[in-house]
């Protein structure tokens, strides 16, 4: 047998250039997202306004109070919310694909969307204040996933396939309930559908503050398991023989991804396909290791959703498209492409 080759071959790690590229995309999305709108504010003004808010910098942007209000109360919260929702949905999708070893998996698979839609629908038709729609959607999304896990366990095993089948069953059940409630309350259909189709319009920083703690914790947990997700690619038995507590890892990652997604869905409505489009685009460029896919998906997802929101705001201006429609327009053909290229692994 031969001697060890020097220098030693190193395992895959996240390369700084790749991180710099997605970081630049996020920065560009932030600036462009803040620039676009009916009020004319220049790129220089946006940048100096951001710098002026940093303690100790001591420069003035020259923006009027109204322009500052537009930036800080409308555009920035919307862009930041878009980044948080996009990043959370993308990294959650990548994590689900890892734990279920299914390239088309995302958190919606276990019924989050259907549960959140039911929660929001019930809140709206009950005439609850708009501020309670978000927690209602969150509770609905989490409740659906808990129901899916409970159903999966009653089927006798904890395999990924069983869980996915239970998710399909629960999603159908929750969707049927939602449809029933909508039919009985047709006067609120417009409001319900406005929520279901997804939007990033905000009432300032409230939604950002609501989402931030969930997003921060769930993203931190998912990132800390990115190497273990690589272990799961060899299958449950082999991963177990390599020292992975497969059920524990699967449960923790699913809980983290679910909590993050449920919080994102609660504030933004149902924005489909981000969790599939972004991780797969990252894989095409940067390889399949979850060490790379997860952090890059986080940043790329943030930039992607801000770009999608820009499209939603401008394609039919002054009317605004639901952002969920934009992501679905992009996502549906992409989904088919992924399906065609990954049939073997399904």
């Amino acid at each position: 047998m031969t001697a060890v080759r020097t220098p030693l071959v190193k395992p895959t790690r996240l390369a700084w250039p790749a991180l710099a590229v997605v970081g630049a995309l996020v920065a560009a999305a932030l600036v462009v997202g803040a620039l676009v709108g009916p009020a004319d504010i220049g790129v220089g003004q946006v940048l100096t306004e951001i710098l002026s808010r940093i303690p100790g910098v001591g420069i003035e942007s020259g923006l009027s109070e109204i322009q500052q209000d537009i930036l800080w109360s409308w555009r920035f919260p919307r862009v930041v919310l878009g980044m948080m929702v996009g990043g959370t949905l993308a990294i959650s999708g990548a994590s689900y694909q890892g734990v279920f070893r299914n390239p088309l998996a995302d958190p919606y698979l276990l019924g989050i969307a259907a549960g959140a839609a039911l929660g929001a629908t019930l809140a709206i038709v009950s005439g609850l204040p708009a501020a309670l729609v978000v927690p209602a959607a969150f509770v609905g999304g989490i409740g659906a996933v808990v129901a899916t896990f409970t159903l999966g366990r009653t089927m006798g095993d904890r395999s990924a396939t069983t869980l996915i089948l239970a998710g399909v069953a629960m999603a159908s059940f929750f969707t049927a309930l939602t449809t029933f409630v909508q039919q009985r309350n047709s006067e609120t259909l417009r409001e319900v559908f406005a929520w279901i189709l997804g939007r990033l319009s905000t009432s300032g920083w409230t939604e950002v503050a609501l989402l931030a703690p969930y997003a921060a914790v769930s993203i931190a947990v998912m990132l800390s398991y990115r190497r273990v997700l690589d272990m799961l690619t060899v299958g449950d038995d082999e991963a177990a023989s390599l020292g992975v507590d497969v059920n524990r890892v699967r449960t923790i990652v699913v809980i983290a991804a679910t909590a993050g997604t449920a919080a994102a869905v609660a504030v933004s409505g149902l924005i489909a396909f981000v969790g599939i489009i972004v991780p797969h685009a990252v894989r095409l460029v940067a390889g399949t290791s979850y060490r790379v896919v997860l952090p890059l998906s986080l940043f790329a997802g943030a930039a992607f959703l801000v770009a999608a929101d820009l499209a939603a705001r401008n394609v039919m201006a002054p009317a605004e498209l639901p952002i969920g429609v934009v992501t679905s327009f992009l996502g549906a053909p992409f989904f088919v492409l992924v399906l065609r290229t990954s049939r073997r692994s399904l």
Binding site: V9, T233, V234, T288
Partner: peptide
């Protein structure tokens, strides 16, 4: 194992 799972896209070193 008798039939090991080969993850798509993974390098030998990884």
């Amino acid at each position: 194992p008798q039939s090991p799972v080969i993850p798509p896209g993974m390098s030998v070193i990884d």
